[in-house]
Structures are given as structure tokens and as C-alpha cells.
Design a protein around this nucleic acid. Structure first.
Lengths: 166, 166
DNA sequence: AAGTTCATTCATTTTAAATTGAACATTGAT
DNA sequence: ATCAATGTTCAATTTAAAATGAATGAACTT
């Protein structure tokens, strides 16, 4: 194994700390630790890394690395490095907050919001079926309020994205 | 057991659906399902409820209900109902989005953000100790970027709160 | 086409988080 | 003071989520 291809095996203290920083960050967002490890190592690495680099340097399984990279690609947090590097795929992080937040909102937040709105519509239909009385009025009021929450969220998301996009 | 104190034991289909709605909601925020159940039942109930009401109607343990109510109180999502109702404590939900979001940001988001900034400061100190070279410059740049992310978040939080508070 | 390299899938295992419930306060009533 | 009602704590258990790694597939090489 020649020197320049040799896999670095341990993490420096600094690298480990940066990775820990991202682990905390992604846990706050409800994502698994391995996502933070992978993105963290890419973030702190000057050179692009392959799946096998992630496996060997982080000491995680190939399965974890593969699944983690898939999610990170879906979120737009990493992309394939397009240089002439042979068959193997190398990754680099996207370090623009704008795009990271955009991807998270698009992939993780909006789908939840949408399914919530569907459920809300069904609940409204259920109240519509009920005989009108004090209780059904109370229910209708509560659902209306939920609808306003949902609407606020829909308006807020683009504001957040705009703010973070410079 | 007299009729007006009798514990209602089952949940109506409507109540169950609303509770499910909130379970989904809190999971998105990284909170346990039981939190959604408790808040959901309070939200859909016209009358105030005691810990034992939550236990019997939701079929959860006293421990879960007690811990769940504590967290919800800390978040400002429920408050004690102050009427003359004997020894037992009754709860009602706070249904103002403003306060719910405010409590969540204060209790869940800000502490994470603060601990992240501490870690960032330590990392910057580590880079300061390194001999200056291309790699340490790269590290410094990465950390600077993280600092900007953190700053953005700090500015954004009050904007979100302001927007949701009417 | 047979061998090699690399990535993905998914049934199983492991780990982390949430829930339980018995024991322990605490408070109020008699 | 004793008892009964209510609420909390925390070690043990259960449940849900994440990680593993052998099997599989896909793509290149000779």
C-alpha cells in the first residue's frame, strides 16, 4: 500500500471534537448519530472521502455509512465529488447553511406538515358529521385553531429559508 | 360513585384521532409519544383533567403521566387549573401557539444552542494552539463558518417568536 | 464470462429511549 | 398521631430506533 493512498485510521482529537459537535447538532434535529458522524467527518476533512474512508475512519459499518450517505444526499447535505478519481465515489459536504436548511425543510418538515393537514381535514369532516351542540362547537373551535397553527407554519417556512439564504 | 364524578374510561374515535395528531406532532419535535397523548387529551377536552384522569383515560402509567405533566409544565404547554376543586390538581392546556413555541425554544432549543457555542469556543482554542499551516487555516475557516450558522440561529429565533406572536 | 471492486439491502442484533410500577414522599382529613 | 388520598422518583422492563454485516447486485477489468 503506497503512502499517498494509505487510509488514515485514527481521528485526531480535534476531528473527534468536531464530529461530536455535529452529533449533538443532528440529534437535536431528530436524526441518528451516524448522520452527524458522517457529515462531521466530511465537514472537517479538506479532502473528499469515499464510503470506505468513512467506514474505516469512523469505525462504523458499511451499512450505516451507505444508509447515512443516502439520507445526507437526499437532504442535499453532501454531494458526489465529480473529479476523475476512478470507479469509487467520493463525497464532499455542502457547507451552505441555506441549502442544508432548505433540504431539511423540504425532506423532513414539509412532509410532516402535509400529512398533518390531511389528518386535520379528516377531523373536520368528523365534526361535520356530529349533531350540532356545545361539544361539537368546542371541537370545531379547537380544530380551527389547529388550522391556524398549520397555516402559520406554512407561511413561516419560506421566511426562515429567505432569512438564512444570506 | 356518583354520575358526575364517574371517570369516562374509553376514548371516542374523534378524541383518539386528535390525540394521534398530537403524537405525530411531538415526535416531529423529538419528544416522546406520551407527551403528545397527554397534551392531546387535554387539548380535546372541554373540562380540566387530573393526573388520574389522564392515567385512566389514556391507559398510561402514573409515572408516565407525572413525568409528562412535568415536562409540559416546564414547556408552558399546560398549567394548573386554579379553581376550588379540593386537594387534587387539575390541568388545562395552553392553546396559544406563541407560548407553546416560546416555551419550546426556551427549554429545548436555546440550551442546545448555548452548549454548541461553548464547544465551538473550545474548538477555536484548539486551532489557536496548532502550528499555523494550510490545514489549521482550513480548520479556522470551517469553524468561522460554524460560528456564522450559530449567529444566524440566534438572530432567527426571536424573529420566529415575533412572527408567531400574532 | 469469470473475477474483482464497490455499494446497497435487509433480517438480525445492539443500543438508546420511553414506560412501568412499586416504594417513597407529601398533604389533608379525622 | 393515624389514615387515606395524591403525586413523585427511580430501578427494572419494555419498546422503538439505529447499527451491523452477510448476502446481493451492479459495474468495471481482463
Amino acid at each position: 500500500m503506497s503512502a499517498e493512498v494509505e487510509a488514515k485510521t485514527g481521528l485526531s482529537e480535534f476531528e473527534a471534537q468536531v464530529i461530536g459537535f455535529f452529533c449533538d447538532g443532528v440529534r437535536m434535529l431528530g436524526l441518528p448519530k451516524s448522520i452527524g458522524e458522517i457529515y462531521g467527518l466530511l465537514y472537517v476533512s479538506q479532502e473528499v472521502l469515499s464510503l470506505d474512508d468513512l467506514v474505516s475512519r469512523l469505525g462504523i459499518s458499511k451499512g450505516s455509512a451507505s444508509q447515512g450517505l443516502r439520507l445526507l444526499r437526499e437532504l442535499g447535505a453532501v454531494r458526489e465529488f465529480d473529479g476523475v478519481v476512478g470507479r469509487r465515489v467520493y463525497y464532499e459536504p455542502d457547507v451552505e447553511l441555506k441549502r442544508l436548511v432548505g433540504g431539511f425543510i423540504k425532506e423532513q418538515v414539509r412532509p410532516h406538515l402535509a400529512s398533518g393537514e390531511e389528518k386535520l381535514a379528516k377531523l373536520k369532516a368528523m365534526v361535520g358529521e356530529m349533531p350540532g351542540n356545545a361539544k361539537s362547537d368546542f371541537y370545531a373551535g379547537r380544530l380551527e385553531r389547529l388550522g391556524r397553527w398549520s397555516k402559520r407554519a406554512r407561511i413561516l417556512l419560506p421566511i426562515i429559508q429567505k432569512f438564512l439564504g444570506r
